[in-house]
Write a protein that binds this DNA or RNA. Structure first.
Lengths: 226, 226
DNA sequence: AATTATTTTTAAGCAAACATTAAGCTTGCT
DNA sequence: AGCAAGCTTAATGTTTGCTTAAAAATAATT
């Protein structure tokens, strides 16, 4: 696993590098935004740790540029305390997670593992890969390995929605609005029924992916094993 | 909530303004693209209603320019029938939704509510860090280091409230009003019970954070520091 | 056009999670 | 000591979510 570190505080950058090497990741370190962009562009990393405040080019611009060039490498933003605003921007710009400095080693490693696991690939329009499953919206099929299973339209739309918003809990209200339409009269139970359908199909596929309920809040797509 | 209306058909623009005012939004109206851009740039609106066909500068250019300048205000595009092509462009350019003219009042209001709500979710509001703990309202988890613990909705809301008002003592009255609702009949004891639950969980995490009682006044979130 | 198959919606019973209540206990203050 | 404020626990009540099955609506097939 190759990880790119973009961080101008050399002290911190080097410390992180040591930690990662000890945990069997290979690393490259650069100390400014422009180099970060150049390195990231090669699309040869599995993950990028990207500081926001950087010389030459800020982290958000780097990230946006990469995303514009269809580089989908997962990115964890590093933010100093008080840069919360920037954090929000970073998530908007396509970051997968963020981590506030200073951070503890186990936390860093946990986030890295999570991001690597979480990686969603969109190979072609309407084809999503998440963990061990592939959802193809163009023929409404859900695949794990050699096993293919058919989804109904609503099942597909719901799963697509959960995959796209993988890091957020989606409330029943939001789901109804998006899948049934803002003016529909669908009840919460409709969502529950379809969540139940999806769970049945996911478990039929013996997938690592599962749908977690956050009581009073919503649903969340997760990969079970760590 | 401030809404900017950019629409050159004065008749329509004024009608929309009346509707919004009646629903307690404050509004500004401009009648061409350039003014729309100028106003939007101030980044002081919660939502922009943006027509596509506009004098001086078309709506899509306005939107793209705003996005380039990192203005992330949610935008609902207004399109005349037959401008479907343009609609697609608008969504590409970063619009959140679109609405075909002519539209009905309840539909307009529903879309506005939806867009405003979505904004909150996208910004991932609800992740709070205080001292050594992190509260994530989207999955109701409370974390210290690698240890995660589950909170119920009420526990989460209460802790969120205490974190947000970390320097102030929050009285039971205020807490009841905010968490249980101003018209609830919850007793002081309800608050005490939940404070007790939270303390148990904080101490389970061995967190530096604790809830201090200020007798006769309220509760206060503190970092113990040792 | 009628029949059949598929998908979506509705309804109901059940289980688990959560919230509330009340009683007895502890603490701090005068 | 005596009182009031606050704490804790267990029981009881309520809500939320899950799961089925069957009805209704769509779509496909003959």
């Amino acid at each position: 696993m190759r990880i790119l570190i973009v961080e101008d505080e050399r002290h911190l950058a080097d410390a992180v590098e040591q930690i990662l090497k000890k945990n069997n990741y290979s690393t490259d370190v650069v100390y400014d935004g422009e180099s970060g962009l150049d390195y990231g562009r090669t699309d040869s990393y599995d993950l990028i740790l990207l500081d926001i405040m950087l010389p030459k080019m800020d982290g958000i611009t780097v990230l946006k540029t990469l995303r514009k060039e269809h580089i989908q490498t997962p990115v964890i933003m590093l933010t100093a305390k008080g840069e919360v605003e920037d954090t929000v921007w970073g998530l908007d710009a396509g970051a997968d997670d963020y981590l506030a400095k200073p951070f503890a080693t186990p936390e860093l490693l946990a986030r890295i593992r999570a991001s690597l696991r979480r990686k969603v690939e969109i190979t072609q329009e309407g084809v999503y890969t998440f963990s061990d499953i592939e959802l193809n919206m163009s023929n409404l099929s859900l695949r794990k390995g050699a096993t293919n299973i058919h989804l109904t339209l609503k099942e597909g739309e719901l799963l697509e929605f959960l995959i796209v918003r993988k890091n957020m809990a989606s409330s029943k209200e939001t789901i109804i609005e998006k899948i049934w339409g803002y003016d529909s009269e669908a009840e919460h139970n409709n969502v529950e029924v379809y969540i139940s359908f999806l769970r049945k199909k996911l478990s039929f596929l013996k997938s690592e992916v599962s749908i977690t309920t956050v009581r009073g809040v919503g649903y969340l797509l997760k990969e079970s094993l760590g």
